[in-house]
Amino acid sequence: MQCWVVQKILPLYVGNDLPVFRKNIAVHLQKCAHCRLVYHQYQKPRNILQSLKTPQLSPNFFEGYWDELYRKIQVVQKPQPSFVESFFSLRPLWRPAMAVFLLVVGLLLTQKLWIPRHAGQLLTPQPTAIATTSPMPFQPIIPKKQLEVLLKYPETMEYRLDQVEPLSTKNVSF
C-alpha cells in the first residue's frame, strides 16, 4: 500500500473502525516510520478521550438529583383538571365573560351547521312518483302493446310528414 492511502484511512484504523485492509496497513506500519508517526498522532488523542470515561457520581449527588426529579414526576402525574373544573377555577369576574363567549361561539356554530343543511334540502330535486314506482323516469310515448305490434309488422308504421321523403318528380311527365 502507498503511504498516502494508509495515512488517509488511519483515522478509522486507530479505532478498529476499518473493516478492510487491516492486515495490509499493519504490515505497512511496521515498515514505514513516517506512517507510524502519523498513526501515533491519531492514537494519542484517542487514548486521551478513552481515559476520560464516565465518572462515578457521589451518592450525595444522586440523592439531591432524585429528589428534584421525583418532584417533577409528581407534577407530571397530577391529573389535569377537567373542563368544568377549570371553568370553576376561574376568577369570579371571568366566569360570566367565559359563559358569554361560549354562548356566542355555540350560536355561531349552530347557525353555520343549521343553515346549509336546510338550504340544501330546498335545492335538491324532489323525487317523482314515477321514479319511485317504475325503473323508467318517464312514461313511454308509444304504449307498450302498440310498440310490440309495430315491431312485428313494420309495414304498418305510420311516418310523420317530415320523415317521409318527397316523391321525385324529375322524370315524370304529365
Partner: peptide
Amino acid sequence: RLFRARQIFK
C-alpha cells in the same frame, strides 16, 4: 463523521 471528527480533533 468519525473519520472527520478524529482528523479535526487531532
